[in-house]
């Protein structure tokens, strides 16, 4: 998919985020959730945003369609096909949501309204953005449920969320998200709450949608096996910043950032292909994630880093092209002492 990096009109990426920072005012002070993230997404691309809890990946995702809670302060720029979204009036932003940018959330159990039928909740977005009548929306809803792989869609449409399994509900969420053929689909931990066997099916739905509808997808996940399975490119985040960015095959073959390496070592053997029978203890990363209340001018990962040197506390490394003999397509890393691509 590396060929389709630009919007259909050819000038620049579909979604372009520069210097995105998000602060929350809390009773204990200001929380710097995202501290300056640059991100671009091409049409039809599947980009994974990964990192552990609290690294700012979800906040980054929520800030794209302006869905952050009250009290969030957002700075930087989010452009969809060149149109700035952060300064868009609420009304215009609502026209973008669900139509051009839509979302799938982590919790399929609670993300659907328990009081309305699947058909109502699906039809709602069609009536809102496509101006469909109830009858048209109903017919289209059946097609959409079929598209995301729900059997007997004409029956399911009359059912309530509690009558569906978790995997079914997540498929319904995806059907709602793709109902208006959005340019960008943001999926925040879409498979985390599901059984592993169901996960694979849901990921297949995403892949299928990208291939059939050309939807660009931002996939937020802490699960590197999901990244390896579906994404074209991945951004690894740590403490509110991107620390490494590369095409997925390149990232898994030659991780540069010690944090990325730490995440990969924490994967079970079946995923890392270390071989059956040989099962070393999973390696954890020592130490704790730094508090989001402070933002010293140093490498945030340095206290936990096995490769830390004195200069890591002198200033903050910026994301730059990784030194590499291979023609690594846009592999960037924010580290003064990156791994030299020796693999794992």
């Amino acid at each position: 998919m590396t060929g389709a990096r630009t919007a259909p009109n050819g000038d620049g990426p579909l979604l372009d985020i520069t210097g995105l920072a998000v602060d929350f005012d809390t009773e204990d002070g200001v929380v710097h959730a995202v501290k300056g993230v640059d991100l671009s997404l091409g049409a039809g691309e599947i980009l994974a945003l990964c990192g552990e809890s609290g690294c700012g990946k979800s906040v980054t995702a929520m800030s794209i369609p302006g869905l952050l809670p009250r009290g969030a302060r957002i700075s930087g720029s989010v452009k969809l096909e060149g149109r700035e979204l952060t300064t868009l009036p609420a009304r215009a932003l609502r026209d973008v949501r669900g139509k051009e940018i839509s979302m799938v959330f982590q919790e399929p159990m609670t993300s659907l309204n328990p009081s309305f039928t699947v058909g109502y909740q699906l039809g709602e977005v069609l009536r809102r953005h496509e101006g469909m009548s109830r009858g048209q929306a109903r017919a289209r809803s059946v097609e959409l449920l079929d598209l995301v792989g729900i059997p007997a869609p004409d029956r399911r449409i009359k059912e309530y969320p509690h009558q569906l399994s978790g995997g079914m509900r997540q498929r319904v969420m995806i059907a709602i998200a793709v109902a208006c053929s959005p340019k960008v689909l943001i999926a925040d931990e879409p498979t985390t709450a599901l059984d592993v066997t169901i996960q694979a099916g849901v990921l297949d739905v995403f892949r299928d949608l990208r291939d059939r509808l050309g939807t660009a997808i931002i996939l937020i996940t802490h699960d590197l096996s999901v990244v390896a399975d579906i994404a074209d490119r991945a951004i690894v985040m740590y403490a509110g910043r991107a620390v490494e960015q590369a095409p997925v095959t390149e990232l898994f073959a030659r991780p540069r950032h010690p944090y990325t390496m730490g995440l990969m070592k924490a994967l079970p053997a079946a995923v890392t292909a270390a071989g059956v029978g040989e099962r070393p203890r999973l390696a954890e990363i020592p130490g704790m994630v730094p508090t989001p209340m402070t933002d010293p001018d140093e490498c945030a990962f340095q206290p936990r880093c096995p490769r830390a040197e004195p200069d890591c506390t002198a200033s903050r490394p910026i994301l730059e092209k990784a030194v590499s003999e291979s023609p690594a397509d846009g592999h960037t890393v924010a580290c003064f002492h990156p791994l030299e691509g020796e693999g794992r």
């Binding site: 869905l67 959330f105 659907l112 709602i176």
Partner: peptide, 15 residues
Amino acid sequence: TADYVRTARSKGLSE
């Protein structure tokens, strides 16, 4: 603050 309200907002519905 429920998730389904967040979903409703993400659909672009009016407040």
